[in-house]
Amino acid sequence: MTETFDKPEIRTPENLVYSKTKVLTDNVMSYCPGCGHGTAHRLIAEVIDEMGIQNNTIGVAPVGCSVLAYNFFDIDMQQAAHGRAPALATAIKRLYPGKFVFTYQGDGDLAAIGTAETIHACNRGENIVIIFINNGIYGMTGGQMAPTTLPGMPTSTSPYGRDTQIMGNPLKMTEIVATLPGTYMVTRQAVHTPAAVRKAKKAIRMAFENQKLNKGVSFVEIVSNCNSGWKLSPVKANEWMVNNMFPFYELGDIKMNGELVK
């Protein structure tokens, strides 16, 4: 018999240090192996769980890989048309100012088709959380060029690499929204290592706590991988992300407590 290395004697409730939060459903997530979406979902769910706001939170899912996010969060959710999540969230929060409202959007959704909704929700200072997953590619539709695709990066619609002379430049929406008076907190995080995950979770927690202050949008970008779109193994994709995405999309806080930090 193969050795299992199990230690059943320590598997007791008082020794439990980590288990899946009940704010995530038991459905198997539809994301590819190693995709940062799953980790980002879990962090949001853990924050909702820890804050005790499962019955007081309304989430808005986008169009893109996370279109089915409502199957994974055990909270009330609405599915928005492509790019329009901040418009839905605006109305929800204004009609229910006491509820916690967040949108979960990818780069195509937030930074291309939903640019106007994103910028105006941020500029009006809607008291919501926006979680922005940036993996530089359209994952759901099969790896096409996104507004955030890096210069020279190959995608199915820029097969020889993004030529900025022809295809334009990647858009740093996070830096743009940080300049708007309606954003209270803007930060860029990642979820590829334990340390990054713990930091990202603190940022998401702060973003949700900020809703109690009624001071505007808390915007958390998570630079993530797209193993399938990038055509790399999950571990290699994370390495590629560190070497290529992070130099362009620098991690760290951009705006805290309504003040630009850099």
């Binding site: 230690k7 320590i10 598997r11 007791t12 020794n15 439990l16 240090v17 980590y18 288990s19 899946k20 939060t21 995530l24 198997v28 997530m29 994301y31 192996p33 190693g34 995709c35 940062g36 979406h37 799953g38 980790t39 879990r42 979820v191 590829h192 290592t193 334990p194 995950v197 713990r198």
Partner: peptide, 16 residues
């Protein structure tokens, strides 16, 4: 718990 913290599918439970 590093493994559980980075697991995208939340499949790992940790005891200490």
């Amino acid at each position: 718990a590093n493994c559980a913290v980075v697991c995208p599918d939340g499949v790992i439970t940790v005891y200490r």
